[in-house]
């Protein structure tokens, strides 16, 4: 446990020093600064557009960090052979995976919190300065909750990236596999909706079977997407939130345990 914590701390420090981390953060802040100007191109309730852009930025930042940092930092350990230094110490490989994950998740968490804070500040600024006949209602609490679930989604993606990194030494391959899981995980729910709808009558049973299989195997990331509900101030039933939370947590834990299992079997060159 202590070893994992120490490793997490080192990973976190290492992550903050990465140029990719800085690049992503600068990009996020620039996008948020521009959100007011971009929203101004729309009509009517431009605060809605500002909120959409803000939450999309939070989402994009968390995901980019999960994609790049997850695959990069583990590949770097293997590439620079620094992993031998760690594993030569009395640290189990399971501790290594969980420590790495802990550090990276903290990094994504801190960044998400920072970007969320900046998103709230910019939204508040545009809310106060926009000239609208009827000031729209902004559900600040729900915006924060949506950001929290974005973090949850990114943590799951992070676990996916560690899972793939546990058996491939190529950061690029792990990145592409993670990206594939993300793309499938984002669309399975939608595809299932289409199949259940009128479009489903035209779909062949094989395609339906594949879609159903994908739906049950891949993580259903749409469960963690509260962005639209937050922007439109829709009701968020606590039961659904708890279900989504447990689902993400269980899936993440399963991936980390699987990653540990594979990593233990892995031969280090």
């Amino acid at each position: 446990m202590r070893a994992s914590l120490a490793l997490a701390w080192v990973t976190l420090k290492e992550g903050f020093r990465e140029r990719a981390f800085l690049g992503i953060m600068v990009f996020a802040f620039l996008l948020l600064l521009a959100s007011g100007a971009i929203a101004d191109l729309s009509i009517g309730n431009i605060i809605k557009v500002t909120q959409d852009l803000g939450l999309a930025t939070v989402s994009l930042t968390a995901l980019l960090l999960a994609f790049f940092m997850g695959t990069h930092l583990m590949a770097k350990d293997l590439d620079k052979r620094s992993i031998y230094m760690v594993l030569s110490k009395p640290i189990g490989r399971g501790h290594y995976i969980f420590g790495k994950y802990g550090g990276l998740a903290t990094l994504v968490g801190i960044s998400t919190a920072l970007v969320t804070l900046f998103m709230l500040i910019t939204t508040f600024y545009f809310y106060k300065t926009a000239r609208l006949y009827t000031p729209p209602h902004v559900a600040w609490g729900k915006l924060i909750l949506a950001s929290l679930f974005i973090f949850l989604e990114a943590s799951l993606i992070l676990a996916v990236s560690l899972f793939f990194s546990s058996f491939t030494s190529s950061a690029l391959l792990a990145l592409f596999l993670t990206l594939a899981v993300y793309l499938v995980g984002q669309s399975t729910h939608q595809v299932m909706d289409f199949i259940k709808g009128p479009l489903g009558k035209k779909t062949s049973p094989i395609v339906k079977g594949i879609a159903k299989l994908a739906y049950y195997v891949f993580p259903d990331l749409s469960l963690m997407d509260l962005k639209s509900a937050a922007v439109h101030n829709l009701p968020m039933p606590p039961g659904d939130l708890i279900k989504a939370f447990i689902y993400a947590l269980a899936y993440t834990l399963f991936l980390l345990i699987a990653a540990t299992f594979i990593f233990k079997k892995r031969e280090m060159k």
Binding site: A20, F27, T168, S170, E267
Partner: peptide, 22 residues
């Protein structure tokens, strides 16, 4: 386990991320 796809060669992730960001 050896890398089955031989994708282990040097890969500059930083360079790729910078390109993607650009």
């Amino acid at each position: 386990m050896k890398d089955p796809l031989h994708l282990q060669g040097p890969f500059d992730l930083w360079g790729t991320s910078v390109h993607l960001l650009w």
